[in-house]
Nucleic acid binder design. Structure first.
Length: 567
RNA sequence: GGCCAGUUGGUGAAGUGGCUUAACACACUACCCUUUCACGGUAGCAUUCACGGAUUCGAAUUCCGUACUGGUCACCA
C-alpha cells in the first residue's frame, strides 16, 4: 500500500460512498426542482392523485378515495393525476394500467395527467415509478451525502433473529437505536463491503425519538398526537435498486407538486416516517386526508371487519359492472359516504355534476362505514328514473352487449318497440322507478316482446291463479269491442262502460258498498286482462301496455291464452 | 404486546356545552292514493348517544378510567 492510497482510505467521506453507490448519477436534486417547478395555480387550487399498485384490481375502497381526489381537484379547477406505483415487480399484472384507466373512465374519473407505456400526458412525468429510477437515485444519493442514508448489509436471517429476540424481550420490534446494526459502520467498512459485493439495502437514518410526540393535523381526523419515527426504514431495495413505497411516494408527491393526499386510514401509522422524510429534504408536507376504511358486518362473528376481496363480491368493482349499476349511481353512493349531506345538496342542485359538490374532509365520518347495497339500489333506481327513454335504451344496450348478447340482438332489431317500452311511465313528473340496474331489466320487460312471450310456453302463465279470473266469454266480448284510444282516461271510460253493461261495478269502491248488486267490478276485468296479455300478476299501467302491443297483439295473446288453457 | 384511532336506531349519519322532546336519508311497519305492481303522500320506528366516574346550573358534546372494535408494527403498497 503506497502513501497515496493510504491517505485516500483515511479521508473517505459520505461523498465517496455516494459516488461508489451511484457513479452514474450526475444530476442534483436542484436540477429536478427546476425541471418540476411549482405548478402555476391559484390560491386554493388542489392537486391530487390516484396512486395504485398495478395489480389492475380496483376495489370499492380505492374508488372511494379516487372519487374524493377527483372532486377535490375538479371543484378547485385543479389537477388530478394517475401515478403507477410499480416498485414491487412481483405484484405487477399485465395490462394493469389499461385496466385502471378503463375503470376510471367508466366512472368518469379520467385523470388530467397519466402515462401509458411510453406515452406521457403531463409535464410532471414519468408517471410510472419504475421509469423514475434515476430520479430516486439522485435523491437517495443526496441523503447519503448529507449523512441521512446508509447502506445496510443485514440479511433477512439477522433481521428475523433480531425481531424474535425483541419479541421475547418485550421491546418494540424494528430497526432502530441499538438494533440499527449497520448505522454506525465506518465509511471504510461500508465501501469495502460494497466493493466485495455484499448485497445491501439503503436505509434512511432517522433522527427521531420515539418517546417524543408531535401533533399531526389530518383533515378528516383533526389533531392527532403521534410518536416521532425512529425506525431506519429501507428506502432502496437490494435486488432491483428500486425505492420502497415510503420513499418513492414522498419524492413523487413533492416533485409532482401534490397538495392533497387522500388515502386509507391504514396509512396513518406511517405518517411519522413520511413526515420525517419530507423534513429531511426540507420540503413542505402536503395535506393529508386519511379516509376511514369500508367495513362489512361479518356473518359469523357479527363484528365489523374490513371489506374483503375473498369474502365480499361487492368489494370488486367488477361486481357493479356485472350487475349493471350505472356508474353515476355508484359514485353517488360513495359520495354519501364521503359527506352525508351529499344527497341533500344533490336535491337542491339537480343539474350540477357531482364534481361541483363542496366536499369537506371535516364532515367526513372518522369511523369505518358499512357500504350499504340497499342504499345503492335506492340511488340507482332514482337515477335511472330520471333518464330519458333513449338513455335507458343505450344503458341496457351497452350492458347486454357484454352480458346478454341474445337480448342485445333483440333490442337492436326491435328498437322502436324497445323505446316504447322504456317510455312506459317515464319522462313525467313522477316517473316509474322499477329499474334498479341494467341486469334486472330483461326480467321485467321481456313479456312485452312477442318472441319471449310466445316462445316460453311453460313460463308464460305459470304464476296465474284461476280464482281471480272472470269468465272468458266476458273477456272475449271486451276484446271484440276494444278500440285503441289516445288517452288513458278515454280508455278507462270505455272499460268502465263495458263493465256497467255487464253488471260489473265501475269501481271497487262502489262494489264494496254492496257486493250483492254486482258480479264484480272493473278491477277484476283489468286483472284478468293483465294476466292474459302479460302473463304476470303485476305490470305497469295496462293502457300503456295495450298501446304497445296494439289490438292485433291483444287478440293474438288472447288466442294464445285460450290455447294454453285448453291443454 | 407497543403505538394510533373509533364506538350516536337494522344501515349511512347530523350534532363541537343550553336552540335536541337527537336532523336528514336508506331499510322496515301501518294507513292513504290506486285496475295490479312500482311511484307518491301521511304516520310510526334511539326517553337516549359503549360503560363507569369527574367538571358544570346544564354534557351525545369537555376530562379521566374501563370495555369492545379496527388499523399498524415487511427489502408489500
Amino acid at each position: 500500500m503506497d502513501a497515496f492510497s493510504y491517505k485516500k482510505e483515511v479521508f473517505m467521506t459520505n461523498h465517496d460512498l455516494a459516488e461508489l453507490i451511484f457513479p452514474n448519477i450526475t444530476k442534483t436534486i436542484d436540477d429536478y426542482e427546476k425541471q418540476y417547478p411549482e405548478r402555476n395555480l391559484g390560491e386554493g387550487v388542489k392537486v391530487t392523485r390516484f396512486a395504485p399498485s398495478p395489480t389492475g384490481f380496483i376495489h370499492i375502497g380505492n374508488l372511494l378515495s379516487t372519487v374524493i381526489d377527483y372532486v377535490l381537484a375538479k371543484n378547485s379547477n385543479g389537477i388530478f393525476y394517475l401515478r403507477n406505483e410499480d416498485t414491487d415487480k412481483a405484484r405487477e399484472k399485465e395490462n394493469a394500467v389499461d385496466l385502471i384507466m378503463k375503470t376510471l373512465s367508466h366512472y368518469d374519473l379520467f385523470p388530467d395527467e397519466y402515462q401509458i407505456e411510453e406515452e406521457i400526458h403531463g409535464e410532471y412525468g414519468p408517471y410510472i415509478q419504475s421509469k423514475r429510477k434515476e430520479i430516486y437515485h439522485t435523491f437517495i444519493k443526496y441523503l447519503i451525502e448529507i449523512g441521512r442514508a446508509y447502506p445496510c448489509f443485514c440479511t433477512k436471517e439477522i433481521l428475523e433473529e433480531t425481531r424474535n429476540s425483541q419479541e421475547t424481550d418485550k421491546v418494540r420490534t424494528g430497526y432502530y437505536g441499538n438494533y440499527a446494526f449497520c448505522r454506525n459502520l465506518t465509511i471504510e467498512e461500508q465501501i469495502q463491503r460494497i466493493k466485495r459485493g455484499d448485497p445491501y439495502v439503503i436505509r434512511f437514518k432517522s433522527l427521531g425519538d420515539f418517546e417524543k410526540k408531535f401533533i399531526f393535523n389530518d383533515l378528516v381526523k383533526g389533531k392527532i398526537e403521534l410518536p416521532m419515527n425512529d425506525q431506519d426504514v429501507p428506502i432502496m431495495k437490494s435486488d432491483n435498486q428500486l425505492p420502497t413505497y415510503h420513499f418513492a411516494h414522498i419524492v413523487d408527491d413533492h416533485l409532482m407538486r401534490t397538495t392533497h393526499v387522500v388515502r386509507g386510514e391504514e396509512w396513518l401509522s406511517s405518517v411519522p416516517l413520511h413526515i420525517e422524510l419530507f423534513q429531511a429534504f426540507g420540503w413542505k408536507v402536503p395535506k393529508y386526508i386519511h379516509i376511514p376504511l369500508l367495513l362489512k358486518k361479518d356473518e359469523e362473528t357479527g363484528n365489523a371487519r374490513k371489506i374483503s376481496k375473498r369474502k365480499d363480491p361487492e368489494f370488486s368493482m367488477s361486481y357493479y359492472e356485472e350487475k349493471g349499476y350505472p356508474s353515476l349511481a355508484v359514485i353517488e353512493a360513495l359520495m354519501t359516504i364521503a359527506n352525508s349531506n351529499y344527497e341533500e345538496w344533490h336535491q337542491q342542485h339537480p343539474d350540477l355534476k357531482f364534481t361541483s359538490f363542496p366536499f369537506s374532509p371535516k364532515k367526513m365520518s372518522t369511523s369505518g362505514a358499512y357500504f350499504d347495497l340497499e342504499k345503492l339500489d335506492h340511488l340507482s333506481k332514482n337515477y335511472i328514473s330520471t333518464l330519458t327513454k333513449e338513455e335507458v335504451y343505450q344503458g341496457v344496450l351497452s350492458w347486454t352487449k357484454k352480458y346478454d348478447p341474445s337480448f342485445h340482438k333483440l333490442l337492436k332489431s326491435e328498437k322502436e318497440r324497445s323505446l316504447a317500452i322504456f317510455n312506459i311511465e317515464r319522462e313525467q313528473k313522477k316517473p316509474r322507478k322499477d329499474f334498479i340496474n341494467w341486469s334486472g331489466v330483461k326480467n321485467q320487460i321481456s313479456y312485452l316482446y312477442d318472441s319471449y312471450f310466445f316462445e316460453d310456453y311453460e313460463k308464460t302463465y305459470q304464476d296465474l291463479t284461476e280464482e281471480e279470473e272472470i269468465e272468458m266469454d266476458l273477456l272475449k266480448a271486451y276484446i271484440d269491442s276494444y278500440q285503441e284510444k289516445e288517452s288513458e282516461s278515454e280508455w278507462f271510460e270505455d272499460i268502465k262502460n263495458f263493465a256497467i253493461h255487464h253488471n260489473y261495478a265501475p269501481s271497487p269502491k262502489i262494489y264494496q258498498e254492496d257486493p250483492t248488486l254486482y258480479k264484480g267490478h272493473v278491477g277484476m276485468i283489468c286483472e284478468t286482462l293483465r294476466h292474459v296479455i302479460t302473463g304476470k300478476k303485476e305490470s305497469p299501467n295496462l293502457f300503456q301496455i295495450l298501446k304497445i302491443i296494439g289490438k292485433e297483439g291483444l287478440i293474438k295473446r288472447f288466442e294464445f291464452f285460450q290455447k294454453q288453457n285448453l291443454k
